[in-house]
Structure formats: C-alpha cells, structure tokens
Design a protein around this nucleic acid. Structure first.
Lengths: 198, 198
DNA sequence: CTTTTAATTGAACAAGCGTTCAGATAGGTT
DNA sequence: AACCTATCTGAACGCTTGTTCAATTAAAAG
C-alpha cells in the first residue's frame, strides 16, 4: 500500500511529488495535466490516484510541506544580539531558498490555484514565518540596534528582497552563493540599521 | 472593423483586454478559458477572435503594453544628483505599480505561459527597465553617494523589494501610499548608502 | 427603402481534461 | 503449486478546451 499516515497525512509518493514539483514549477499547475505527471513518473494517469486523492491535494501538499520544512529549519535565537540573529536569518533564508527554487516558485505562484481551505492553511504558515523575522526586527528596534519606523513593512521588504534572489540566481553564474549572501546581508544590515552620517 | 494598426499592432479591443486582465490576474492565464473571457465581455467566444488572433496574443499584448507604459512613464534625469533621482525612481515605481496591481501580477506570474518569441520580447523590455535603475546606482557609486559592491545585485534587490509592495498593499489598509513610499524610500536610501557610524 | 459592410452568433471540430474502475500483472508468502 | 495483496493498465465517463466558419443580425451608406 502506498498510503501512509504521519502527523500530517503524507499521501503522495515521492516519485509522484518530484514529477509534479518539476512540472508545476516549469509550466504551472493549471497548465500541467495529470497525464503529463504520470508520463514523467512512467505510469498511466490512473496510477497517480494510488498516491494522491486528487490534483489539488498534490499541489497543496507540495506547498504545505515546503513551508513546514522552512519553519522547521529555522531555530529562533533570542539569546543572541538582534544583529547577529538577523544575519543568520538572512543567510539562512537565501541558502534555504536557493536550494529549492522550484518549491519557492510554486509556493509564491500557485496560491491562486488552492482551494479556499487549503489557501488558509498555507497563508497561516507563511504568516508564521514572517512573524519570526518581524520578531527579530522588533527586538532590534527595542534594543536600539535597528532604526525602523514600521517593523511589518520592513519584514515584507526584507523577505521580498531576499526571496527575489531565486528569480535570477544561477549556479553557473558570476557570483557564488556565499558572495551573493554577503552582498545581500550588507544591504539588509544597512537598510534596517541607523542612518548614515552627514 | 475592430482591427487597428499603430506603431505596435494594437489588435485587442479594450473591453476584451480589460476582461482578460481581470480574469488572468484573478485565476491565471491557463485557468481562464476564452469562453469565460467572452462571458465577462458579454459576447460569445467566437466574437473574441475579431479582436485577437489567439489567446496567447491576448496575454502577450497585456504584458508588452504594460512594460511599454512603465518605460514611457519614467524620464531619466541625469542632470540631477543620483540620490534625488533614486528617490524619484523609488516613489514612481511604487506609485506606478500600486496603480496597476493586476498587470504587475500578470507580468511577473505568467512569463511561463508566453511562447519563446514573446517571452524574449518581454524579457528585453524588463531588462531595459532594470538597466535604468542600475544606471542610477552606478552614477551614485561613481559620485561616492552610494556604497555598493555590485550594482546589478543592488538593482535586483531594490526592484524586488519595491515591487513586493503590490502583494500586500490594500487601499483600505493601515498606511497610505505616501506613508508606504516614505518608509520604503527610507530603507532603500539606507541600503544603498554608506555604512552607519559606530 | 435598399444595398453594403461590420459585428456577432451558435454550432461544430478534434483534442484534452480529471477522475473512476474492472481487470490484468507482478512479487512475496505459504 | 496456490494464494494473497499491492500495483498498475487501459478504457471509459462526461465535460471543457481553443479555434473556425457559414449564417445571421445590426448598423451605416446610398
């Protein structure tokens, strides 16, 4: 039996997931048919329904598990100075997202194709992640390390800026991941920090 | 006859464009049928083909005209100090994009659904816009106003950050457009500027 | 009013869609 | 060998898709 149960029902088999991930990222959820996914896996379309109840669930689980992994991968470090934690967050966010460009793409692009209930779940998870960054910024504001008039806007600005890396970064490009992370951290640090002199 | 010719062939009638814009933004290109667009306009599906040769062209013209308008709306100000021009760019980018959230959404989300030839056109236009920001940053680096180790990365970072506003801004939200622009300009200015003291 | 021209319908086309399911196949256990 | 069970096929279901086009309606021109 391919169906298994975990703390989340983990219905979808890994081969089906990988194929769906690849195709959804490349062509979009609505543009990819179950038959195309099946062909990628090497089975007939009917066989997919041993691994997922329907196409919608396939998309939802991809997103949910991605956000679960994103949340699980980051450990809050409240004992550390805000600037240090923000640097860790910045580098972690870039590294994590560059390792999963397809999932990042899907998680941002296919929100429209989720059913309302599934959308609500995904939005909650995303909000939880944003709150972690906001907490760091608020801690830094309180400590006087950061100079920001609005922690919520700063959160959105930093996340948009960092996630944007996935849209242009190429492993065979001009700069290494480390170099990119260094440069972005430099900009983030300045953006949230105090005003320059003169 | 509904077909007209301009410097660009402007095939698509405005009512059809508006309906397609609305539906593509809400549900996605691949998820919206010609029959749905026709219903929104109030005609049968066949009538759409008086205004567009096919669905692909409908999408392409939406994107192309959006980017044309974006490029046309910004006048380069090389006589002005880089910091001043960057502030104008920042505020203009936010204002322009907040006025057209649907088009912005489509222009970023539906690139995958363009034919290769159409994609190349759109990417060229987008690159031209990015180059304008990069030119400002390079001018500021040369003048010593900005402290950036990589103008290309800074360009991508600033555009991602600014465009991200369209994903969460609501007219009935907590902050006005001006307030948002003020806060974002503050962060952009610091991000590209010199390091803070201490 | 008649003729010409433009705009639109409505049916049709071949193809593809998500999903179901009876039946075939394969692998492991007795 | 026979049995069991998990896996998968292949056909079928009803429905939707983008696009075409002869026939019709509406509007404009004479």
């Amino acid at each position: 039996m391919a169906r298994k149960q975990g703390s989340h029902a983990q219905i979808t088999g890994p081969k089906v997931r990988d194929a769906a991930l690849r195709l959804f990222a490349e062509h979009g959820f609505a543009a990819v048919s179950m038959r195309q996914i099946a062909a990628e896996v090497g089975v007939q379309a009917g066989a997919l329904y041993l691994y997922t109840p329907d196409k919608q669930t396939l998309l939802f689980e991809l997103m949910r598990d991605h956000l679960d992994a994103l949340l699980a991968a980051w450990r809050v470090r409240e004992a550390v100075p805000p600037l240090v934690e923000l640097e860790a967050f910045t580098r972690h966010h870039i590294a994590f997202h560059l390792d999963r460009p397809d999932l990042v793409f899907i998680a941002y692009m296919e929100l429209r194709n989720l059913s309302p209930e599934n959308f609500a779940v995904i939005e909650t998870l995303r909000g939880r992640y944003e709150n972690r960054l906001e907490a760091i910024l608020q801690r830094g504001i309180a400590a006087g390390t950061f100079d920001l008039s609005d922690s919520k806007l700063a959160t959105m600005a930093v996340i948009a800026m960092l996630t944007g890396v996935t849209t242009w970064y190429r492993d065979d490009g001009r700069l290494s991941r480390e170099a990119v992370a260094d440069i972005y951290w430099d900009m983030v640090r300045k953006a949230v920090g105090p005003n320059p002199p003169d």
